[in-house]
């Protein structure tokens, strides 16, 4: 004769549930704390990049650079404007003689990549790398400018600067 005896489940006891709840709570708190730290870091990165592109494009579009009359070997501050928001096209061409690394150094963006494009009705010029749309952080900025070609022709155009970090 087989005798079936009832045995209480050892797992689903009240103790188990209490401990499970505590465990899940601790797990969630840890997860949130970790994630928050990660988000804050990401926010700072984005914020930093936005400030950088603003500073860089502000200097490009509103100042003539430093020293005044700079060339590819003497430039310390990159500025392409002889009057506010008017790009001197010859300076832009001169800037192309500066190496990529030189430009990232001057702009203080050695940990990043950039693309600078000036486009108008009759021109389209770009400096830097091709934009990596898969980058982890990417910050573009576009400004309306006038392009002075120096021969009496002035074009309405756009200055677009894109900064990214993989």
């Amino acid at each position: 004769m087989i005798r079936w005896t009832k045995r209480k489940g050892q797992t689903f006891t009240p103790d188990f549930f209490v401990s499970a709840i505590i465990f899940i709570f601790i797990l969630n708190v840890s997860y949130l704390a970790w994630n928050s730290a990660q988000d804050i870091g990401s926010d700072f990165e984005t914020d930093y990049m936005q400030k950088k592109v603003f500073y860089i494009t502000d200097m490009i579009a509103r100042t003539p650079g430093y020293p005044y009359g700079w060339n590819s070997t003497t430039v310390e501050l990159i500025g392409l404007s002889d009057s506010s928001n008017m790009i001197n096209y010859s300076k832009f061409l001169e800037l192309q003689n500066v190496s990529y690394g030189g430009m990232t150094f001057l702009w203080g963006i050695s940990d990043y990549d950039f693309n600078l494009t000036i486009s108008g009705e009759t021109t389209y010029e770009t400096i830097g790398k091709s934009i990596d749309n898969n980058a982890r952080y990417i910050t573009p900025i576009e400004r309306v400018v006038l392009i002075d070609y120096g021969n009496g022709t002035i074009d309405k155009g756009y200055l677009k600067y894109t900064l990214w970090k993989i």
Binding site: D58, M59, Y66, Y68, L77
Partner: peptide, 17 residues
């Protein structure tokens, strides 16, 4: 970093403007 870059930016803008 932001502070130092802010100061540098404002100073450089004042000089070049």
């Amino acid at each position: 970093t932001s502070i130092s870059e802010k100061i540098a930016y404002e100073t450089n803008m004042a000089v070049t403007s």
